[in-house]
Nucleic acid binder design. Structure first.
Lengths: 230, 230
DNA sequence: AAGTGGTCTAGACCACATA
DNA sequence: ATGTGGTCTAGACCACTTC
């Protein structure tokens, strides 16, 4: 364990235990240098880490203070479906249902970035049974070579993940009732509750892909954990 | 903009643009010191930040490499319901439905930490109409004073948030069909799809609270964003 | 005006993974 | 055995904010 980690964990523990209450002022850095017998850079690193984790707030000239607790965000595991299925110990599969040229507005009306898209729809399979369905638009200009890709064999998500350098994403998570068509594809009752995940991905300012995935509510849960960072 | 930020952003931009492809080896730190004309600590800080963001991977003796893109996690906004309602421009309210002594297993069977609990159930209101229902267990030993709290006036979530020093949390997000009772409380049809959020909160090793919140699927979506850090 | 955190330098030692 | 990243020191200057 590094010195910076030890300092951070010690203070974090005193905050979590309630010994240091919200609003409490922590010693200034030079006092902590004396108390811990290390350099100021090390103290500073520990304090910066606490601030990044939201445990403390730091203000110049004023000092460092224990923050009010807040639970406003958590790290969400975003489904890489092939991996999820593999971790369940089932065999992953993909079945292409449709592939055609499309426009940006075919999946949603609010896409401000026009341009040619490829529409791909299909079903993710776990142990041969439907696990999730997916409808996806891929921007042709952002993804060279996509028109030659073989989406009969490989799901477009993993194909893209291996080729697009980096991305920014926005997710929207909903509960919806399965439409007739979706229920058929998933082998569930029409109207059954489903978890719907919609994801927009960009590369810089240009959209790369926009996907809607629908999971039967009884077959998949998202799990997120939030705790002391590191 | 600091030197470390400038170095980080420059490399991040080259990775996102595709100029630096996954697997590409970046210069070693002492070369970057020469290239940027700064100290090694500054280069190291920039590279550590890139590694924390998942853009690069660093291995001792081997060097630093552009990482394969991955979108496995995102920062999830966890509902602080009063705030959500306020941001929608509606008036928040809370209606207590039930309050009684309970056991840890009353909400789920798998709580390994026995002990006395307080059970609280009620409805969150937006503009007077039901917005979400909540069922909650609160551990008496972890939350002194909870037996005297007035949950007629204040929702237990915000009451707890203002008093519990810090917490670790686990979330589970599901799509479920509204039960008869939940549908009545929410003013929706029985069986309608709902987003169900379950959260366990700890303080150190001891559980603090365990809550199930149910939102009508058409009234609330979770939104997550994932992008370049900072 | 003074004190605080934010950042940087130049140098050092070490653990570790690879060659 | 060697080179890499990981961490730390001691000191410095600066920007900002409150006093």
């Amino acid at each position: 364990m590094t010195i910076a980690q030890a300092i951070r964990d010690g203070i974090a523990a005193r905050i979590r235990s309630g010994e240091l209450k919200p609003g409490h002022r922590l010693p200034v850095e030079h006092e902590m240098v004396a108390a811990y017998g290390c350099s100021r850079a090390t103290v500073s690193k520990a304090m910066a880490s606490l601030a990044a984790a939201g445990l403390i707030e730091r203000r110049r000239k004023a000092g460092s203070f224990v923050a009010r607790p807040h639970l406003e965000q958590a790290v969400l595991a975003v489904p890489d479906i092939a991996r999820i299925v593999g971790e369940r110990g089932e065999v992953y599969g993909w079945r292409l249902a449709e592939r055609r040229a499309a426009k940006a507005t075919d999946l949603a009306d609010d896409d401000p970035h026009p341009g040619a898209r490829l529409f791909v729809a299909g079903t993710h399979l776990a142990g041969g049974a439907p696990f999730a369905i997916e409808r996806r638009l891929i921007a042709l200009d952002a993804v060279p070579g996509v028109e030659e890709a073989d989406f009969e064999r490989e799901a477009p998500g993993s194909w893209l993940l291996a080729r697009i350098p980096w991305s920014e994403a926005r997710h929207r998570i909903d509960a919806v009732a399965a439409s007739r068509a979706d229920a058929m594809a998933l082998g569930i009752a029409s109207g059954a509750p489903c978890l719907r995940i919609e994801r927009w991905t960009w590369r810089g300012a240009s959209p790369v892909t926009h996907v809607v995935q629908v999971f039967p509510g009884d077959r998949y849960s998202l799990v997120a954990r939030f705790g002391p960072s590191d």
